[in-house]
C-alpha cells in the first residue's frame, strides 16, 4: 500500500505540491486530474524519487521510501515503474535493449556494460513485448517506431521491472485516440491481472471517467477532490479548473464531459 503524508514540494517560491496526503491500495487505478501546473507531474516524480520532496513522507507497505538513496533508492525505483508522456526511450537503441534496461538495475555492472543479457531475460522481454503486440519489432530501432508503439515499448520496459506500483505521467497526451485507447487498455489490464496499483495523470476527463476506479483532482498543488468518478460533479469541476470551465479555455474533452 502506498501512503503519502503531508508531502510538499517547493521550487524556489513556487509551491508545486502542497501538503498532500493520500493512500492507494493494490488493484486501484487512480486517475489524477487538474489544470496544467497543478503539480500532478511533480507528485508522481516524488513517488519515484526523480524529485525529492521538500517535506512529508512517502511510504510503501509501511516502509519510508522518501529518504532512500544509493542502491536502495535504485531498488525502489525498479519496484515502482514510471511511464512518461514522451516515452523517454533511447531512440538509437533497438527495442529489445530498451526493454532490457528494465533489468539493468539488477544485473552485474560488467555484463550490463558489455550489453550482455541472459537468454531468460531476453525471453521475458520478448514475452512482455508480445503481450503488447510489439514482439515483431524487437530488433528495430526505437526511434523508427510511431508514438503509440514507443509508448507500448515503454510499458514493456516497466513490466520487465516486475513493478509493485506503476506510475504514468500523461501517458496518452501525445497519442492519437486509437493509440490512447490501446495504452489505457494495457494499463487497465496490468492493474487487474497483476494486482498492482496504477496511478495515472490525465488531462482528459473522458478517459479518466472511463478507466479509473478512483479520481484525485488537484488544484494549485493541493488535493481538492478524492473519490469515485461518479462524484465528479460540475461544482467539483468548477473548483478543480478554478472557474475557468468556459467553452473557450477548457480542453475539448472536458466541455464534452461536463
Amino acid at each position: 500500500m502506498l501512503e503519502l503524508h503531508g508531502v510538499t514540494k517547493r521550487f524556489g517560491d513556487t509551491l508545486a505540491v502542497d501538503n498532500v496526503s493520500f493512500s492507494c491500495q493494490r488493484g486501484e487505478l487512480v486517475g489524477i486530474i487538474g489544470r496544467s501546473g497543478a503539480g500532478k507531474s511533480t507528485l508522481l516524480r516524488m513517488v519515484n524519487r526523480l524529485t525529492d520532496p521538500t517535506d512529508g513522507h512517502i511510504s510503501w507497505d509501511g516502509r519510508d521510501v522518501s529518504r532512500l538513496n544509493g542502491a536502495a533508492l535504485r531498488q525502489w525505483r525498479r519496484r515502482c515503474a514510471m511511464i512518461f508522456q514522451q516515452f523517454n526511450l533511447c531512440p538509437r537503441l533497438d527495442v529489445i535493449t530498451n526493454v532490457l534496461v528494465g533489468v539493468v538495475a539488477e544485473r552485474p555492472l560488467a555484463s550490463s556494460l558489455m550489453k550482455f543479457f541472459p537468454a531468460a531475460d531476453r525471453a521475458r522481454a520478448i514475452l512482455e513485448l508480445d503481450a503488447l503486440d510489439m514482439a515483431h519489432a524487437a530488433l528495430q530501432r526505437a526511434g523508427t517506431l510511431s508514438g503509440g508503439q514507443q509508448q507500448r515499448v515503454a510499458i514493456a520496459r516497466a513490466m520487465l521491472q516486475e513493478p509493485e506500483l506503476v506510475l504514468a505521467d500523461e501517458p496518452v497526451a501525445s497519442l492519437d485516440p486509437v493509440n490512447a485507447e490501446v495504452v489505457m487498455d494495457a494499463l487497465q489490464k496490468i492493474c487487474r491481472e497483476r494486482n498492482v496499483p496504477v496511478i495515472v495523470n490525465l488531462h482528459s476527463l473522458e478517459i479518466a471517467r472511463r478507466y479509473c476506479t478512483r479520481i484525485v483532482a488537484m488544484s494549485k498543488g493541493a488535493i481538492v477532490f478524492d473519490g469515485p468518478p461518479a462524484g465528479l460533479t460540475q461544482t467539483v469541476l468548477d473548483r478543480v479548473y478554478a472557474g475557468r470551465m468556459t467553452p473557450e479555455t477548457a480542453p475539448f474533452s472536458i466541455v464534452e464531459a461536463a
Binding site: A119, R122, A123, I126, D130, A135, H136, A138
Partner: peptide
Amino acid sequence: MNPGQLARARQVAPEALQ
C-alpha cells in the same frame, strides 16, 4: 520462466533470442 513460455518467445521473435 517455464519451457512453454520460452518456446512462445522463440516463436514470436526468433532472431532477437539468438
